[in-house]
Amino acid sequence: MHAVLDYPKISVISPQSCLNATNALEFETNLTKALAQDGISFLLVDLESVESLDSAGLMALVSTLKLAHKLQRRFSLCSVSPCLKIIFEMTQLDRVFEIFEGRAAFEAACLSMEEVTLN
């Protein structure tokens, strides 16, 4: 169901198909494990292959965001399709989550953060 790619300090999770009550607990568990790994500073959830999202899937994302704040780690979303974007806008969670157009935009933001840190 999930493909997990690990980069130094960044973990990317790419869920597939639907995030709903059937798989939300497993999804949240995978997110929590990825976020809790030693050395991870950033967790990116790439929603490119997600076709639908219900309230249980959304709550898995919200719970992980809360944990990320608690652990002082960055949690971001990318590649949110127009139909999913509506859900985030209607719930006003588009103002809460850091959402990037795609992985390239996320990587560019990470690089610019590193440059700011190094200078």
Rank of each mutant, 00 (worst) to 15 (best):
C83A: 15
E26D: 08
T64K: 02
E26S: 09
A108D: 05
E26N: 08
A24C: 10
N119E: 13
V62I: 14
T22L: 13
A34R: 00
F97V: 06
L31W: 01
R103D: 09
S63T: 01
T91A: 09
A36T: 02
A21W: 12
R103C: 09
S49C: 11
T117F: 13
N30A: 12
F106H: 02
N23S: 07
L61Y: 00
E48A: 14
Y7H: 15
T32V: 12
F106Q: 06
F27S: 03
I87G: 06
E114D: 11
S52V: 01
C83T: 14
I10F: 07
S63Y: 04
P15A: 06
E48K: 15
L43F: 04
L71W: 02
A68M: 04
E107R: 00
L25G: 00
G57V: 02
L67Y: 06
T117C: 11
L77I: 05
D6Q: 12
N119T: 12
V116H: 15
L61T: 03
E89N: 14
S76Y: 04
L31A: 06
L93N: 05
S63K: 08
A3K: 12
N23L: 10
I87R: 01
C110F: 10
F42T: 02
Q16P: 07
F88Y: 04
V96L: 13
E101F: 08
L58W: 08
V80Q: 03
V4C: 13
A34V: 04
L111Y: 14
A24R: 03
T32D: 05
L53G: 03
L19V: 03
F97A: 02
C78L: 10
E98S: 10
R95S: 12
G102D: 12
Y7T: 05
L44K: 00
C78Q: 01
S81G: 11
T32C: 06
S14V: 07
I10C: 08
G39V: 07
E98N: 12
F75W: 06
N20P: 01
N30F: 02
P82C: 14
T91G: 09
F88M: 07
L118R: 14
L47T: 03
L25E: 09
E107L: 10
K70Q: 14
L35T: 01
A60P: 00
A109W: 04
S14M: 13
S76G: 08
P15F: 03
N23H: 07
L19A: 00
E101H: 12
T32I: 11
L47C: 08
S55Y: 04
K66F: 01
H2N: 15
S14H: 05
